[in-house]
Every structure is written in structure tokens, then in C-alpha cells.
Amino acid sequence: MAEALNWWKSTYSSGGDGDTCVEIAEATAHRRICVRDSKAPARGVLSVPVPSFALFIEHLKHHP
């Protein structure tokens, strides 16, 4: 059975319906972070290991 994911998006998400952002979910059973387009959530999901995603976020903090 697939793990149910709880999707969330940034409080910085803006636009008419607040759907101009990506959504993030943690797949804890597989230790991965999932990312999808909030405007087209059924189109697909990018899944990366938690440590790789953490490095990505740290890089963004220092190189906006």
C-alpha cells in the first residue's frame, strides 16, 4: 500500500488561488522528500532523499 502524503506549500505562495508554488511532502517510510506543482498535482512528483533535499535548502539559504 502506498504511503499517504500530507502536502504543504510555502506561506509565500501567492496568486489568485495561492497555487503559484510547489508543494512538499515527506515520505517518511522511504526517507524521501516529494515535490509537485501545486497547479497540476496529478502530473507527477519529484522524489529525492532527505539529506539531498536538506543540502539543496541550505544552498538556497546562502545563495538566493
Rank of each mutant, 00 (worst) to 15 (best):
S38V: 04
H30P: 00
H59V: 04
F53R: 01
S52N: 12
R36V: 01
W7H: 01
A29R: 12
T20M: 14
V50G: 01
V50T: 09
I57F: 12
R31Y: 13
I57Y: 09
A25R: 03
E23M: 05
P51G: 05
N6W: 12
C34F: 03
S38Y: 04
P41A: 05
A25C: 06
M1G: 12
S10I: 07
E3I: 10
A27V: 08
E3Y: 11
H63Q: 06
P64R: 13
K61W: 08
L60A: 10
H30Q: 13
R43P: 00
L60S: 07
S38P: 03
V35S: 02
W7E: 03
Y12C: 04
V22I: 13
C34Q: 04
W7D: 02
D19K: 08
L55H: 14
A4P: 11
A2L: 11
C21I: 08
S47M: 05
R32S: 11
S14C: 13
R31C: 10
S47D: 02
L55T: 12
R43E: 14
I24P: 03
D17L: 14
A42V: 08
S13W: 05
A29E: 12
V22S: 04
I24R: 00
Y12M: 07
T28S: 15
V50Q: 06
A42R: 09
V48Q: 01
L5M: 05
G18V: 03
R31D: 15
V50E: 04
T11H: 09
A25E: 02
E58Y: 11
A27S: 11
S10R: 07
S14T: 15
K39M: 07
S10K: 04
C21G: 08
E3P: 03
L5A: 01
V35E: 03
C34A: 11
V50S: 04
S38T: 03
P64A: 14
H59C: 05
G16V: 10
S10L: 07
A4F: 09
H62G: 13
F53I: 05
S52D: 13
T28V: 14
T28M: 12
E26C: 07
E26V: 11
F53N: 04
S14A: 15
S52F: 12
K61V: 09
I33Y: 04
V35F: 00
S13L: 05
A54D: 13
S14G: 13
D17K: 11
L60G: 04
C34L: 08
G15L: 09
H62S: 14
E3K: 05
T20W: 12
